[in-house]
Design a protein around this nucleic acid. Structure first.
Lengths: 339, 339
DNA sequence: CGGTGCGTTGCAACCCCGTGCAACGTTCCG
DNA sequence: CGGAACGTTGCACGGGGTTGCAACGCACCG
């Protein structure tokens, strides 16, 4: 409204102050919660700010309080259903507490996790959430030393600075074994990938251990990345032999979907009559009629809530050792025989 | 390595300078590309910086050049396969050109799009990409006036400031009709949602128009959000009648998957023998063996590349009118009868 | 009427960094 | 050996915002 403004740059508090006929401090205080400004000047300032299109520069503001309000979220494979859902849950909540998420996609390259962590420092992020990837320990230490909150999800290396969030993978895997055992399955398989992340390994090991205790042997496959295609491939390999497994525990729903499709379309097997399948994560597709996959639900909302609680805490409260462990709950559908 | 540092705050260039025994400018120049520093001081500075854990404050840096290097990405429904893939493509590329993406989840609430756009200004983002939602025109104007690049995807309101990226939905919809016509289908349906976004509407209208020209009538359904469940529900309704459609054009793959499952599992129909289905987007699940969905592929990589090109351009080049239109290409799988 | 207390306001310093400018040291050449 | 040319370095300022401090105006009270 203020005539032609061809400057093509951001409006500063100075300009607003001049237009409103007050000092720059007054403008600042108008936009600072709890500062002392009279109602009349506040009005003047707001009017001037509106007409110029002024917005507080959070960057300059954070020069002082050393926290930009930015929360870094580091992940590879953002387009995976599970991570996408986590991202959705996190960004939605951040928006609600008027903070903001910076998403850094490390694209699987391990060295770029380091780069990502550097960005976190460059932008004075108040917190960093690592969804996947193995960040170098020394950089994490720098983050913590700088007063950042570092939150690691599903990593097993328990450093003391960062907060860890884990899932009780072992318990879930044992439960999975019991479910298959009760269904009367004896020849068992685990379908995993070559990713080798701590949680995937824990699920595999947990299942193996439970089976071993029961005196049953387990065939373990690991192919490619953690994807539908890998599950399909695993199915092709596992099911071609003469005495094929009667049940498969797939460490991820994506793998499970691929495995199921291989079983049905490559070998004409019916699920769960001829082969039982259990997945992990409870991604949306697991509930689709074509799959109806019995699986374990990660409590994403609980985890996200917990993270928000961590962010709200005062910075120096190392109340506990910083580790929170959540339970994955079984979701019964139709890919395992009942009883 | 530098003894105990209990300060718990970020390291400044000043501290590095003192430790290295040089001036603060020297430190600054060491971390600025193309600045003149001798090799010896650079070494000294780097060593000091390393031992203190120093990282340049991008925020302070951006006070000067008025661009924080942050690119805002605004979207609702991040966990949708299509948007997740777009997000992945974008963040990956941003990382490669050492910029960074700030993801703002507007969570469907229309007023929060405004909030999101405000954040964009607060953080002096160099560019804003709007994946979904209808941003208020006046705020967009402020963004553009502030020198930001605003990129709107799949919106049809063509303001002059922002760059628009669209898909030729009409052409694709016509092509979809032809594919079904050639397959010998006469009773046709369109499955859409209540979201009412421009692209969904365009697909529906385009299909209807093409059918009308050929003298065929089309039943149009629109239920709920753009999801699997809505597609399923649509199927349940459409297929229960006596003369059910022989083919359905679902304006989204998610809808298509739901529709297919309803057809198969609720009514025992086989695809494509008894009913043909075409989707849109080519999400990953469309390629899964359970669906084998014939669909239209959105050229996400091309679009992402194009956006990067827009970001690389000098700010004031309004070379063209700012609209780029991409073609969706048909992907033949097994959900439509050949010939 | 003077003093006190309170709310508001402006000044100036500071947050961290980049950069023009001038001074400095060095090398090289005439 | 003197001077020019050049690369390096430090100083000081600016960028936008916050904040302690002091000054100011005002109402209230004794």
């Amino acid at each position: 409204m203020s005539g032609t403004r061809t400057a093509r740059s951001f409006v500063s508090a100075q300009q607003v102050a001049e237009l409103a006929g007050v000092s720059r401090s007054a403008v600042s205080r108008t936009f600072t919660d709890g500062a002392s400004v009279s109602e009349t000047t506040r009005q003047k300032v707001m009017k001037a700010a509106d007409s110029l299109g002024y917005h507080v520069n959070h960057l300059a503001r954070s020069l002082i309080n050393e926290d930009s309000g930015i929360v870094c979220i580091i992940g590879a494979e953002i387009n995976t259903p599970y991570q996408a859902r986590m991202l959705d849950a996190l960004t939605r909540r951040l928006q609600a507490i008027s903070r903001v998420g910076m998403v850094i996609n490390t694209a699987g390259d391990s060295s770029s996790v380091e780069l990502a962590l550097r960005q976190t420092l460059n932008y004075r992020a108040g917190a960093t959430i690592v969804l996947s990837g193995a960040p170098p320990a020394n950089l994490i230490k720098t983050c913590v030393a700088s007063g950042q909150k570092v939150i690691l999800i599903n990593r097993d290396d328990h450093l003391d600075g960062p907060k860890n969030i884990t899932l009780d993978n072992t318990a879930a895997a044992r439960e999975a074994f019991l479910m298959l055992q009760r269904a009367g399955c004896e020849r068992l398989a685990v379908v995993s990938s070559l990713a080798g992340t701590p949680s995937l390994v824990a699920r595999t090991k947990g299942f193996q251990a439970a089976a071993a205790e029961a005196g049953l042997k387990v065939t373990v496959t690991a192919t490619g990345p953690t994807s539908y295609a890998s599950g399909f491939e695993a199915g092709r390999v596992l099911l071609s032999g003469s005495d094929r497994p009667q049940a498969a525990f797939c460490v991820t729903d994506l793998l499970a979907c691929g495995f199921m499709d291989a079983a049905r379309f490559e070998f004409g097997l019916s699920v769960p009559q001829e082969i039982c399948v259990i997945g992990f994560d409870d991604i949306e597709q697991a509930g689709w009629a074509s799959y109806n996959l019995t699986t374990f639900k990660q409590p994403i909302d609980q985890i996200a809530d917990h993270i928000m609680r961590l962010l709200a805490e005062p910075g120096d409260s190392a109340s506990d050792d910083g580790t929170a462990c959540f339970q994955a709950v079984p979701v019964w559908r139709r890919s395992v025989r009942p009883r």
